[in-house]
Computed example of a mutant assay.
Amino acid sequence: MYNQQIATFLKVADCGSFSKAADSLFISTVSVMKQMNTLEHHVGFLLLKRTNRGVLLTEAGKSFYCDAKKIIQLSDDAIQNASLIATEEENAKEYTIRVATSILRPCKPLVDLWAKVDDGTLPFKISIIPFDDSPAGMNDMLASLGNTIDCFVSPCDSISWQQKYQILQLRQNNCCIAVPRNHILSKKKMLTWEDLDHETLLLLQHGESLLMNQIREDIEKNHPLIHILDTPNFYDTTVFNECEKRGCLMESLDIWDQIHPSLITLPMDWNYKMTYGIIYSKNATTALTSFINLVKKELLNTTIS
């Protein structure tokens, strides 16, 4: 903020030597001497007496030294005071976290968790942005992630998502089977692999989901009597409608038990669970990163307790 030559002059005066000042400043002696020559040329008079034993201040140099010390101190104080004000202004800001939400990917798990974190003093508020679960709607929402949308909550074992985005795992949800209400299996409390024999099962197409790939491989290897019918990369309400229309079964999640009024979600006798979490950009803003860290801390506290 101030002329660096002034700081170098003060160091030379304190050390009484160009070489000692240079060592202290981690620069060459020649550089120190050039700075002093330039400074003296600029002010128009000598500030230092050069001797074989070092340097001494001239009378003008002594006066300049005292005032220069004040200049340096005033400059440092100005920076510190401005920094404190800037910090206070930053702390007083309120940041809006824009959370995308849809029928199949509601933001409620995050909102409920944030309610436990926010004591009313935190500088964050949540703004809900609706989107459509259709392939086009999903693609538009993902294209906005990191721009007009900060994050969303969803099943998150997508291979491409794990490569493109950051993911904070919230919980594990049970994989279940959705059954039309008029289907013979709808009366059961829990389904087994044998119940699925000779049935058509809607299942996410191979490749995108690690978990769905495992279920598919399990079926193809150990339960060949189950007929698999591929669905798109992303579930939307169309898939649920297709399940009801065909009268077939569908792999689903326990959190989706209220999606379609004509379908019943039944637990399945297997150990498959889907990771559910917050998905956000790898280039997250400082504000979003702070928000996520607070959520992460609450998750850790909940786990410990």
Rank of each mutant, 00 (worst) to 15 (best):
N3V: 09
A7C: 04
T8Q: 03
L10I: 08
K11M: 10
V12H: 00
A13H: 09
D14G: 06
A22C: 12
D23M: 10
T29E: 09
S31Y: 15
N37T: 15
T38V: 13
F45P: 02
L46D: 11
L48H: 08
L48K: 02
L48Q: 04
K49C: 01
N52E: 11
N52V: 10
R53T: 09
G54W: 09
L56C: 09
S63E: 08
Y65S: 03
C66Q: 15
A68H: 01
I71N: 06
S75R: 07
A78Y: 15
A78T: 07
A78R: 10
I79M: 15
Q80E: 10
S83M: 13
L84R: 13
E88I: 13
A92P: 03
K93P: 01
E94Y: 15
Y95Q: 04
R98Y: 06
T101P: 02
T101I: 13
C107M: 08
C107V: 11
L110N: 01
L110Y: 05
V111I: 11
W114L: 03
V117P: 03
D118V: 00
F124M: 05
F124I: 03
I126Y: 12
I126P: 07
I128E: 12
I129E: 05
P130N: 11
D133H: 10
D133W: 04
P135D: 05
G137H: 01
G137N: 11
A143Q: 14
A143C: 12
S144I: 02
L145A: 06
D157H: 11
L168V: 09
L168G: 07
R171F: 07
C176Q: 12
A178N: 01
H183G: 14
H183E: 03
S186Q: 14
K188V: 02
K189M: 09
M190I: 02
M190L: 09
L191N: 05
L191E: 14
T192V: 13
D195P: 08
H198E: 09
E199L: 06
L201C: 06
L203W: 03
G207Y: 15
S209V: 04
L210G: 13
M212S: 06
I219M: 13
I219H: 12
E220I: 04
K221L: 07
L225E: 14
Y235N: 05
E242H: 13
I255G: 04
W256A: 03
Q258W: 03
Q258K: 02
I259L: 12
I259E: 08
H260R: 07
P261D: 13
T265N: 07
N271C: 09
N271D: 15
Y272G: 02
G277R: 00
K282C: 04
A284E: 05
T285R: 04
I292C: 14
L300G: 05
